[in-house]
Nucleic acid binder design. Sequence first.
DNA 1: GCCGTTTTCGGCCCGACTGTTTTCAGTCG
Length: 589
Amino acid sequence: MESAHIAQILDEMGTILEIQGENPFRCRAYHNAAQVLSSLPADLSEMIADGTLADVPGIGETMHAKIVQLATTGHLPAYDKLRKAMPSGILALLKVPGLGPKKIKALRDALKIESLADLREAAQSGAIARQKGFGAKTEANILEGLAFLEKSGGRILLNEALLLVTPIFEAVRQHARVIRAEICGSLRRRTETIGDLDILFSAEDPAPILKDFVGLPQVAKVLAHGTTKASVLLPGFKSDQYVQCDLRGVEDRQFPFALHYFTGSKAHNIAIRRRALARGLSLNEYALTGNGSEVACRTEADLFEALGLPEIPAELREDAGEIEAAEKGTLPHLVTVRDLTGTFHCHSDWSDGEATLEQMADGARSAGLAYLGIADHSRSLRMAGGLTIEQVRDQWTRIDALNEKFGRGFRLFKGTECDILADGTLDYPDEVLEGFDYVVASVHSHFRMSREEMTARMIRAVSNPRVTMLGHPTGRLLLVRDSYAVDLDAVIEAAARAGTMIEINANPHRLDLDAVHCRRARQKGVRIVINPDAHSVSGLQDLTYGVSVARRAWLSPADLLNTAPLEKVARQLQQVRTRRGTARAGRDR
DNA sequence: GCCGTTTTCGGCCCGACTGTTTTCAGTCG
C-alpha cells in the first residue's frame, strides 16, 4: 500500500478516536503521523527497508509497526475494528461547520444521529435544540451548515484563490487606518489548492477596519464579527459556491508573531512553539515571551532570529525538515520567477493553442524570457490538432525563419509534446524525433490501464534516449480527476537513471509533478523544468504557479534547466539528446 | 501515541469567538 493511502487511514483513525472521546493527544499522534507520511523525503518502501522510517520524528514504535503492516499486507486489524464501531456517515458529519467530535458524540449518544440525513431530520424536528448543551441557535446553525455543505465545492485552485483575495486584500491594505497587511494561511505557503482565505493587518484599533470589511460589496454572508477578527463568505467561481475569508487585526508590535502564526502550517507552528519552549520562551500569536518580558521583533525574520534560526520561507513551513535545515544552515536558496530564462512546453495555433508562433515569441520576450520552446501536440492527438510529420517539417522551416529574424537576442526551440502510446513507444518515428531540439513525452490516452502496465509504459518512455523530459507525470486535474494509477517513484527512478528531466506543469489545474515527488526527484538527481503548458500568450503567466511548486519542493535555480542562460540551455539540450555527461541536479542538502 | 540539554513519566500550542451558560465547553485556525 502506498504512503498517501496509509496517511489517509491513519488520519481517519485519529478522527474516529476523537469522536470516541479518546485522549486528544493520542488522536493527534495519528493525525501527526498522517501528515508526516504525506511528505516523506523518500519512497516509503525504501524507508522501511533501510530502517530510516523509524527515525522520522512523530513516528514512534507503535505507529511504525502499524505503517509497516499496512504497507506490506494492506490491512490493519486496529483500523478494521475502529471502522466497525463507526458508521461511515458519521465521519461526514465533521464537515458540517460548527460540528466537532464532541458534539457529534453527544448527538450520537442521545439521538442516534449517524449520518447527514439523520442530522437534518433531527434539526428540522427541533430535537437537537432540546438537548443539553445545544440550543435553538446551534440547531439553526446546523441547518445552515448543511445547506452550505451542499453549495460549497470545498477547496479552490491556487489561481482562483489569488483572484478572489486580491481585491479584498487591496481594500484592507489601502485602508487609511491600516499600518501593515499580508495574505496568510495556505495561500501564502502556496499550497496547490486552498480551503479558505486569510488576511492579517495591524492597526491601532482593528474594529473599524473589521466593520468596513464585513460591509464590502463582495461579502455574501457574515459568519463571525468580533473586535479583532471577522469571517465572511465570498461567492466562488462555480454558481452557488462560497469561499470563506477570515480577517484578523492586531497591534503593529504583534504583527510579526501573528503573521507567522496565521501563515502556518499548523505542524510547523507546533514545532516552532516547542522550540521556543525548549529555550525557556513562550510563543503565541501576539508575542514571544521569556522571563516575563517580551522579545521585541519588527519582522518575521527577527522572530526566527530570536529562536536561533534564519528566516524560513513560507513555502517550506510544513514541518518537513525545514526547521532542522534552518538550524544547520542548509536551507536552499529558493528559485524565484525572476530566475527563469525561458520555458519549453507551450502550444501554438499549429495545434490547439490560440496564438501564432510570432505572438507566443513576442509574449515570451515581453515577459523577459530569452527563449521559448514550442511543443505542439503529436499526430495521434487528432482532437487537439496534433501535427502530421509534414506539418512538423513545415513548422521547423517556419521556426528557422523566425529565428533568423530574432538574431542572437531570442530563440524559439523546436519541440513536440509527443504522445506516449499505450505500449510506451512514442508517436513519431525516431528519424523525426531526432529533428527536434527537445521532446516532451506525455500520456494523453489509455488512462485506465493497470498500475503495473502504466508504470511499465512510462518507464519505457522516460528510458527512451529521444525523450528530453516527461510532461505532466500523473495526468491529474486538481479537484476534478485523480492521477492515473502509476508507481511514480519507479518512474522517477527510471528518469534519474536515463538522465531524463521531469516537468513541473505549471498550469494551475495540474501542478504536476507535485511538490513532494518533485523534492524526491531532485534528491534522486533528476533535473526539473518548469513549463506553463501555455495555450495562449497569457498562459505564460502560469509559470509563477510552477515556481510555487518548485519552492515548495526546496528547489534552487541550479536544480532547474530553465534558469540557465540561452547558450547553456541549448548546450544542455544537445547533451541530453546524446546522453553524454548528463548534467545532474544538486546533491541532497 | 510521542518524546526527553530538568524528564522513561507526565507533559503535549493556545487564543478568539459562539452559544449556552451564570463561569465554561466546544470549535476553529
